[in-house]
């Protein structure tokens, strides 16, 4: 038996919007730790890892570790029917081939339930070690979205270079080239407007912009995004979900031939 009650239901709505374009169907793993997911896009170039810790739910009951396979497009369709202020409860009985989403309005005057068919999904989990990255950049998530969007109109790939002077985003295409440099700036009024660059080693990696653009669908979840990079490793793009968890995206780099 699984029963998860999330008072801030809008978080779940935003999470689905953040992952459904990258991954069409996925297994959600439920355990005493939390509600999580790891899934790759169909080309195995990008991966999304979601964690919603059990402490973040008002009520969290998960009798045994289970994996429930859901079509994310369909799940997003159902969650779109929840109001932004609604409380969302996810329920699944043992052995059932359906999951129920219950939406309660804050004043309890409207209660809806949507039952969705589960799917059998073959999925493989990748073992991603916890590593110290050579460089990490914290920046406003809106700024990162803007950069990815702007550069996409010029080229298909972006080279992200971190040096002690800042982080440079470079692209080129048929019409020309573009460079955007962001410098460390922590002397701002609001911490969410700060750009913070930690660098142990300079790093320069190239990535497909269409994936980074897809990751920015998570922007409504967090004011800050963290980019972590090491030479010859996938980049990690992390959006924290309050103190409840995170959505992390991993993207394999382009490699010179």
């Amino acid at each position: 038996m699984l029963e998860l009650r999330l008072v801030q239901g809008s978080l779940l709505k935003k999470v689905l919007e953040a992952i459904k374009d990258l991954v069409n169907e996925a297994n959600f793993d439920c355990s005493s730790t939390g509600f999580s997911l790891q899934a790759m896009d169909s080309s195995h170039v990008a991966l999304v890892a979601l964690m919603l810790r059990s402490e973040g739910f008002e009520h969290y009951r998960c009798d045994r570790t289970i994996s429930i396979g859901m079509n994310l497009t369909n799940m997003a369709k159902m969650l779109k029917c929840a109001g932004n202020d609604d409380i969302i409860t996810i329920k699944a009985d043992d052995g059932s081939d359906t999951v129920t989403f219950m939406f309660e309005s804050p004043s309890q005057d409207k209660i809806s339930d949507f039952e969705m068919k589960l799917m059998e999904i073959d999925s493989e989990h990748l073992g991603i070690p916890d590593t110290e990255y050579q460089s990490s950049i914290k920046m406003p998530s809106q700024e990162f979205l803007r950069i990815c969007k702007d550069l996409s109109s010029i080229g298909d790939t972006v080279m992200i270079s971190v040096t002690k002077d800042g982080v440079k985003f470079t692209t080129s295409g048929d019409i020309g080239t573009a460079n955007i440099v962001c410098r460390q700036n922590t002397s701002v009024d609001e911490p969410e407007n700060a750009t913070e660059i930690k660098m142990q080693e300079p790093v320069s990696l190239t990535f497909a912009l269409r994936y980074l653009n897809s990751f920015t669908k998570a922007t409504p979840l967090a004011n800050i995004v963290t980019l972590s990079m090491s030479a010859d490793l996938p980049i990690v793009v992390e959006y924290k979900i309050g103190d409840m968890g995170y959505v992390r995206y991993y993207l394999a780099p382009k490699i010179e031939e």
Partner: peptide
Amino acid sequence: YSNQSTLSSFYGTL
């Protein structure tokens, strides 16, 4: 010219 790598060349499956 640059080639797109895949995640399986960096991480093993569990």
